[in-house]
Design a protein around this nucleic acid. Structure first.
Lengths: 332, 332
DNA sequence: TTGTAGGCGTTATCAG
DNA sequence: CTGATAACGCCTACAA
């Protein structure tokens, strides 16, 4: 029972008016009498007519689609972040009759993004992660297509929406320093990710502000596997380190497991904190001191910013979302 | 440096031929001399012209977009399944110059899907989960829009792509019975999900085939929280149950935790198996006997089926993907 | 083998 | 306030 699609001509004919008038009634542009507008609205409502976005797009040179770039190699711990961002993005786009096209991206291979753009299928792009040398950014800049990046970038010309990781990491580190912990280690991920750099800067800033010299022998980068973490934990425990800060919850999970293996008690033997918690740490025992961000809000802001850019409105080039420091048992 | 988009007219003019010819050269339809085709191809390649999918769509009444329905309330354990499916789908769609629009769906609220369809933004839909009473299916059937569901459905008129859960669950259960386990319990999830029913049927079929009466006092449904699972494990352990089959890895993870809490050793005190493993169980100790499915392949098949349907080709209404039974320590 | 002309469903321009 | 008419970029009979 596939009812044939109804067009603007049908509406115009049925109402004995021109399609120009119908178009005006719907778009709200141009002068039109309230009477005819009401008539049109009633009719299209009743017959449930909706303009074809294809035709609209052709005429207005807009697709009403935005691309969201999805890193193909997202690990299981990153997925919830992405999911929540996407839900936030969707809340805004769907409310504005726009839709989301997913664009898979593996590492720095922008093949798919190029296809999307040369095929003229999108009006703008949201990047959900940025690399130090980001080809997607370069390409988009070159093409002049509106885009916003979730996550900080080094390049200041890029419109960005992010959690205020710097401030958050600085604050958490500062709290730990003020608690009197003498030696605080830091275990971080891929140095090629901007986020890693930002977090490190927050960490260092706290030391600077506190007036304490950082012991760089206690900072580790490019760590991901349980094996690597195990070795580090062992080393740090022997050094009698007070506290380990993990840059994300994936690392933190591994630290917790390593402690279990080595019969190290948290927090009596060793304090633990995490600069990030996607959900993995939620039900862990003991509860873990960590930073909490609102990813959905992040998505919403990114989407709103992008739509504004597409509409040629002025936007804030550097939107920062708020955070909470959640102090738990692991640092008591 | 946003180079202005080039159109088919530009190409035609530059080459001093009509745009019909250009169109033919690109689409491959209609007779055309090899010489002119080559000339056209070279030019468009050099100037990197691509037909506007908007205009193409308007003319051919196709958007070259498909929707993938994304359940908003996906839990963290389901995400990897979805992710892998999506990657599989993308492999096929992108190879065919189609794109994926995500359509968020909360429970049975098809609001977004309706918008997508009335706005004429998609050619077909992939459903990534089916409910017993599925409004999306009903709506799509009514609209006559091509769609395929990943996951079994009760309604046989629906085109479906799925892992062969029935056969897989029957086989795993059968193996356990043949191992001589006397009492085998089953802990399952939401009874309102078709998948739950299918798994249960596989389980029962094994008992029937084996010629053993099922003890329905050992089957539990609608279980999700750790508290629920803990109580059940306690109860079953007191009853000296041999083996617990979990319908999915989320439940299985909880069973493992419950066993740890209650100092129940796997497998010496109790055997454990799971009808599904999304990734959560991957590094668990002891390793868990479970069913393994290829979700990417599933996505690929779903996408190929849908594209065939859109092209009005004949399709297999019931595609079943293969599985592996992976026997591990937990049932030794 | 190639070209002409009309149509796909809207919006925008310019007269009434 | 309303209506022709021409884009928008491509496809496809129908002609040549």
């Amino acid at each position: 029972m596939s009812t044939e699609r109804i067009t603007i001509d049908d509406v115009a004919e049925a109402l004995n008016i021109s399609k120009t008038t119908v178009s005006r009634a719907i778009s709200g542009k141009g002068r039109i009498s309230n009477a005819t507008r009401a008539k049109v609205m009633e009719y299209i409502d009743l017959h449930n007519y909706r303009p074809s976005s294809l035709a609209q797009g052709l005429a207005k040179k807009r697709t009403f689609n935005i691309a969201v770039v999805w890193p193909k190699e997202y690990s299981i711990v990153d997925l919830p972040f992405f999911q929540r961002c996407l839900i936030g993005i969707d809340e805004i786009t769907s409310a504005n009759d726009n839709d989301i096209i997913v664009c898979m991206m593996k590492n720095n291979d922008i093949h798919q993004l190029e296809r999307l753009i040369t095929n003229n299928k999108i009006d703008g792009v949201i990047l959900t992660r940025t690399l130090i040398e980001d080809k997607a950014c370069e390409y988009l800049n070159e093409k002049g297509l509106p885009f916003v990046a979730i996550g900080n970038t080094i390049d200041n010309s890029i419109i960005t929406v992010d959690n205020d990781h710097f401030k958050a990491c600085r604050e958490l580190t500062m709290i730990l320093l003020q608690k009197g912990f003498e030696s605080i280690a830091l275990i971080g991920g891929d140095e090629n990710h901007v986020i890693t750099t930002i977090r490190y800067e927050g960490y260092s800033a706290a030391f600077r502000d506190f007036g304490k010299k950082m012991d760089t022998s206690l900072t580790y980068f490019n760590i991901s596997t349980l094996e690597q973490v195990s070795d580090i934990v062992k080393e740090l425990y022997e050094k009698k380190t007070d506290c380990i800060i993990c840059m994300d919850d994936s690392i933190c999970g591994n630290v917790i497991n390593a402690c279990k293996e080595q019969n190290i008690n948290i927090p009596s033997d060793l304090k633990i904190a995490s600069f990030y918690d996607s959900a993995v740490l939620e039900n862990v025992n003991p509860s873990i001191t960590s930073l909490r961000f609102d990813d959905r809000a992040l998505g919403r802001r990114a989407a709103q910013t992008l739509l504004d850019m597409i509409d040629k409105k002025e936007v804030n080039p550097r939107t920062l979302s708020n955070y909470q420091v959640v102090l738990q048992q692991s640092t008591q």
